[in-house]
Design a binder for these strands. Structure first.
Length: 336
DNA sequence: AACATGACCGTGTTGCAGCG
DNA sequence: CGCTGCAACACGGTCATGTT
């Protein structure tokens, strides 16, 4: 494998990494983030003999070497990303050692943009973080993206009946509704409809299915699911209250709208099969497209704040203006 | 000899059951 | 109800074997 080094034991190659040979001897290995041409950045583990050889050569250079060639490496997939490990017979070459490294070095010289490219993955997948960084990373657990809704997924219900206490799903008992959340265990006289809607969205490059849950659904339509369900059955003279309400106009009319979605990636999303992401929050865009909701006043709705307030006025039943921290904490408590 | 591939083994983690 | 121990599983790391 030949490529240019990005990080050596977590230190950027541009900052002339200092190798502690004692430390490396103790750890028995060196970790190098290496990129071959414009391919993905790979983790390259050099063990024992190869690590020692690497150290020796790395230090022997006047300046910091950038090109690395390692023979006979094992390929491994570590946490989904490609990783390489050295073997007993692995040999290490750099910059002007052999013809292939010389060739690569000159190629790199004529493609300086690739050499300087900062790959997000290298930065985010660091081995060590400070406690503060971990906290801030946790804070950022939800990613934001802007996408356009192109459909509401049919074939599955757009809401579920939740416990009035904790918003977990309720199961139908003989005479009442039982909360499935063991820690809650509340017996409900009547459940509260909550959003669980799948919407199909797209942006410039991809298409995906987002799952809207309670609060996010209300943020999108401006109305709580309970109100939409109630008004449907009221309009139909309470006929078939035990049946399911169809997808309401308020939800259908969001098709074509463009929003900034905060999505949360959970282990469920990462397990592969389901390519759906859970939406935790919906932010208004600066220039929201025309919406079908009549009472909406979007002229000043540029910030999260105003969007929240608008929702509250429509809802009224719940003081949802509490900090997102508190919301998250509550949800976590309930979920477990 | 150097290389490529994959099998195997040990360790860490997680889920479940049983017991206090 | 909570804790502990066990088992299953996944993953990382090493080693063996076949090929060039």
């Amino acid at each position: 494998v030949v490529g240019h080094m990005k990080l050596v034991n977590g230190q950027s190659i541009h900052e002339a990494p200092v190798l502690d040979e004692v430390e490396i001897a103790k750890a028995r290995r060196v970790l190098i983030h290496v990129q071959s041409h414009d391919g993905p950045v790979m983790k390259l583990y050099l063990w024992d003999q190869a690590a020692r050889e690497f150290c020796k050569k790395f230090k022997s250079y006047e300046g910091t070497p950038t090109v690395l060639l390692v023979t006979t490496v094992n390929t491994k997939t570590l946490g989904g990303t490609l990783a390489l490990t050295s073997m007993s017979s692995s040999r290490v070459f750099m910059d002007y050692d052999v013809q292939p490294t010389i060739d690569y070095f000159s190629w790199l010289g004529s493609n300086p943009d690739i050499a300087e490219q900062v790959n997000a993955e290298v930065v985010t997948k660091r081995e060590t973080m400070t406690i503060g960084e971990i906290f801030s990373y946790i804070e950022q657990e939800s990613a934001k993206c802007t996408a356009t809704i192109d459909d509401v997924v049919h074939g599955s219900s757009w809401y579920y009946i939740a416990c009035s206490g904790c918003h977990s799903k309720v199961s139908k008992g003989p005479t009442s509704l039982l909360c499935t959340n063991k820690k809650c265990g509340k017996v409900n006289v009547s459940g509260v409809p909550q959003y669980l809607s799948k919407i199909s969205v797209y942006d410039n490059s991809d298409q995906a299915v987002f799952v809207l849950l309670g609060d996010a659904g209300r943020e999108l339509t401006g109305k709580p699911a309970s109100e939409l369900v109630r008004s449907y059955f009221e309009a139909n003279g309470n006929e078939g209250v035990n049946l399911e309400a169809p997808i309401p106009e308020a939800l259908i009319s969001t098709i074509g709208q463009k929003h900034k979605f905060c999505v949360k990636v959970t282990e469920h999303n990462l397990s592969g099969k389901t390519r759906s992401l859970t939406v935790t929050k919906i932010l208004s865009l600066d220039t929201p497209p025309a919406t079908a909701s009549s009472e909406d006043n979007h002229t000043t709705a540029t910030s999260e704040e105003t969007s929240q307030n608008r929702v509250d006025s429509a809802d009224g039943s719940k003081g949802a203006c509490c900090s997102s921290e508190l919301e998250r904490a509550k949800r976590r408590k309930c979920g477990n």
